[in-house]
Amino acid sequence: MIESMTGLSLAIVGAALAVLLAGIGSAIGIGIVGQTAAGVVTEDPDKFGPTLLLQALPGTQGIYGLLIGFLILQRTGMIGGTPMEISMAEGWLFLLSGLPIAFVGLMSAIAQGKAAASGVLLIAKRPEELGKAIIYAVMVETYAVLALLMSIMILFGI
């Protein structure tokens, strides 16, 4: 199988990993917040709006993953052009460029989900502190953004 692999297939593996892992992370993160929010809204339906805001936060990692996946495909000509001939060495570089957002996306989305779920619990008690609850959850976002940045820099350095 290895012999039949080209540089292009390595690049596609990179794109797939970025979308896969970051997407899984976001799904888990949003799921946790959703469960907690459902509990709070059962008792207090007025909290739907603020809890939805918090639930959306861990969703960004999945979007970052998709962005990197999309950029990899575009740079290799899979989208909007003819697929390029890429050497194995270059293929590895494309694959590696997907990894920062893949792994950091996975872990940070779950961590952010937990922080946001705690935020939901916070506003269950103190609805006026929504801003603070969001800030705590958004702090986690920093590291997803840094990983996205590194993925982009590698990608455009190739």
Partner: peptide, 15 residues
């Protein structure tokens, strides 16, 4: 994590 829903409700009930 399976306690997520329960804890959400409990915290609202505690108020």
């Amino acid at each position: 994590d399976r306690y997520a829903y329960a804890v959400g409700r409990i915290r609202a009930m505690e108020t």
